[in-house]
Structures are given as structure tokens and as C-alpha cells.
Computed example of a mutant assay.
Amino acid sequence: MPVARTKAVPAYSDMEEAQLVIHARRGESGAFGAIMQRYNQSLFRVARAIMSDDSEAEDVVQESYFKAFKALATFRGDSTLLTWLTRITINESRGRLRSRRKTVDLAEVETAQKDGSLVIPFRGAHVMENPEAEVARTQIRGLMENAVDELPEPFRLVFVLREIQGYSVDETAASLGIKAETVKTRLYRARRQLRIQLSEVFSSSIQDAFPFLGQRCERINQTVLARLSEHRLLIDG
């Protein structure tokens, strides 16, 4: 009696982006999961930068993934998948805010900032050597996150993408649909406003700002996959 062969499970986590897209278009849940695992942190930070609330940002990321996966056939590869997902996340976030508050007038902000303040560049993160220092770092990170939350959305988005996520100028411009020079200008003004708000620069904690915890990551993955399954967009459950 012939022995049934077990079908090998693709190593989704090791795939290049283009291959992941191909498998996701087939409705393979593993491919969707790998995409979310790869980009959850980035998209959560983008949504958080606009919504200024962890729970709302999580909801935005879930909805953005669902809409993106439903429309995956329209992704032409003109940009990276992350850039495409970032645009969807930004649109979803701004759409939710549109009826709740007006966008800050950049002209007013620029006028308020004409005080000649200097920009103090952010230094690189360093490793803490003892528990007391780690506690201090956590407190500083909280102060830094609060200061970033106070930035007007256009400045906040550029700051998060450039300083926290490490996007290049061109990647940031492509994600936000603005010119590279605009990215540079907004980052300059974001740094300057933070300089005004803070008595000293708390740069050692900036790379750890807005952490994406494991439980939240898993919750988003399971929620999105369940919705895809409910809409019969998966081939394996």
C-alpha cells in the first residue's frame, strides 16, 4: 500500500517579498502571517504616530491589513510592499481622524517656530549597564514619546519614519507621497520643536520608542487571518 506523502510547508519567513506576495495572492495563510510578522512593527508605529493611541493604532493596522490583502491583486510592485502597506495605513488612520478633528495648519506651526532655535541631533542608542539605568531609560523614553505625540501630525509622521523606523529620505517621501525636500524640512522642524519642548535631548531611548509587544503582534495576526477566512480569501482554512 503506497505511503501518502506529506506536502512540505513553504518557509514563508525566509522568502523574498516578491515570493511572499505570490503565495499570499494564492490565499495561503502562512504567507499572510509572514507578511504581518515582518511589517507589524513598522505599520503600528505609523498608525500610532497619527492616532496617538495604542488601541486605536492596533485597530488601524488590523483594518489596513484586511483592506490590503483583499486588494493584493492591485499591487503592481511599483514600490515595495512595505511602502504600499504604509500608504494604506496612513490613509486608514487619517480617514478615522477626518471627522474628529482638523489637521493642524502647518503655516501656523511654522510661524510659531520662527525663534531661531537650534537643532540638536539625536545621538545613537547605547546599552545600559545596570537596572537603575534601565529604569531611567524607560522614564526618559516615556517623556520622549509624549513629546513626539505633541508634534503636529505631518512632522510626527516624518520623525517616526526617519528617526525611529530608520527610513531613508526617499523611502519616507514615497510612503507619504511628498517631495524629498519636504521630508528634510519637516524633519528639521520636528527636531526643532522637540528641542523647544524638552530641556535636554533624551536620545538613548529613541530606537525603543513605541515598542510592538508580542501579544499585540499575535492578536493582529490572528484577527486579520480570521477575517480573511470568514470572507473565504484563504485556501487553507
Rank of each mutant, 00 (worst) to 15 (best):
K7G: 14
V9H: 11
P10Y: 14
P10S: 15
Y12I: 13
S13F: 05
E17K: 06
L20N: 04
V21D: 00
I22G: 15
A24S: 09
R26H: 14
R26G: 07
G30Y: 05
A34E: 13
Y39Q: 02
A47G: 07
R48C: 10
S52N: 12
E56T: 06
D59K: 06
V61E: 02
Q62C: 14
E63H: 10
Y65F: 13
K70W: 09
L72I: 05
F75R: 01
G77L: 01
S79I: 04
L82D: 05
W84S: 01
T86I: 07
I88M: 01
E92I: 00
R94N: 09
G95N: 11
R96P: 03
T111K: 09
T111W: 09
Q113V: 11
K114N: 12
K114H: 12
L118R: 08
R123V: 11
R123A: 15
V127D: 03
E129I: 14
N130W: 01
P131C: 15
E132R: 06
A133M: 07
A136T: 12
R137H: 10
R141D: 14
G142D: 08
M144A: 13
N146Y: 08
A147R: 07
V148Q: 02
V148F: 05
D149A: 08
E150N: 09
L151Y: 03
P154N: 01
L157Y: 03
F159K: 02
E163G: 11
I164E: 07
V169C: 11
T172S: 10
A174V: 00
A174I: 03
L176M: 06
L176K: 00
K179V: 10
K179L: 13
E181D: 15
R186Y: 14
R186T: 00
R189C: 00
R192K: 12
R192E: 10
R195C: 09
R195A: 12
I196T: 09
Q197M: 14
Q197E: 13
Q197C: 04
L198W: 03
E200G: 15
E200V: 05
V201A: 09
F202E: 01
S204F: 02
S205Y: 00
F212D: 06
G214N: 09
E218T: 01
E218R: 06
E218P: 01
R219G: 11
I220C: 10
V224P: 05
E230P: 07
H231S: 15
R232D: 10
G237C: 13
